[in-house]
Amino acid sequence: MSKLIADTEIEIPLETFPIHKDTDPAQRNEWKQPHRIILILIGLALVGSAIFFLRWDWLPNYGDLILQGLWRTIWILCVTVFLGFLLAVPLGLAQAAGPAILAIPARWFCTIIRGTPLLLQLWLLYYGLGSLFPQYPWIRGSELWPYLRQAWPYAVLALTLSYAGYEGEVMRGAFAGVPKGQLEAARAFGMRRFTILRRIWLPQAIHRALPTLAGEAVLQLKSTPLVATITVVDLYSVASRVRQDTFITYEPLLLLAAGYLVITGIIVFLFRRLERLVPSRLG
């Protein structure tokens, strides 16, 4: 029963955000075909029966907590994807075109981040770095101390570095993949090196990387529950809380799955909008 429900929950976002690229008008009307309508009706029936037969009476008590957790998951995701990407650009550029003194450390960074479990990185930062700080009076006395005592800065740092490590590699490939002629044309017209980067190289590299970046953002979303292990209360930890308090297991997890699916759908949708800004037939 519960497995079936999970399946129908999947049905909704995946159908709304089809994988195939150029959606022509004929495809947009596909959901009106008879077999689709039947599937949608079955899906609605399953959702309806889930609402009807399963226990949701705990929901009102945890409404606020769920919203808080949802909000925290979303902002951690957005902030770390954004900051991680900002780091990934120089990491990729250094590897693709930088001098050895920059390229080698960048490659090491990406290799280490990608080669070790995120959980380990998170714990090393929180339990390792976090436990070193209090030993230094000047850190305890600093303005940053109120933040350094909390868990979320370590969560944000670890997830940011993780995204930067993976995306640094992606951006390296994307930078290197921009055809030489594109950059040569810019040089031939007297563009300065930074202008070339800003106007030609980076936009084309990002466009090449976007489909991968979208996938990685979804993976990042699914890494966020790890922050619960260092006491950050995100969407996932709310489900655990409900289970501990009420001994209800399935329903919170189903709700959780639905929540992550919806966020995934939103990520895919937003990235697809971004991709549409430039035609897909590059180079």
Binding site: Q182, R192, I200, L282
Partner: peptide, 30 residues
């Protein structure tokens, strides 16, 4: 270079810009 108009064998128009954007890119940004 910005006074020499180079035309390449493989055109090398900037792929992420429309034709007009290609044409105004150097006048505006260089």
């Amino acid at each position: 270079r910005s006074r020499l108009g180079m035309v390449f064998q493989n055109f090398n128009l900037w792929q992420h810009m429309t034709l007009l954007q290609n044409v105004i890119e150097v006048p505006v940004h260089v």
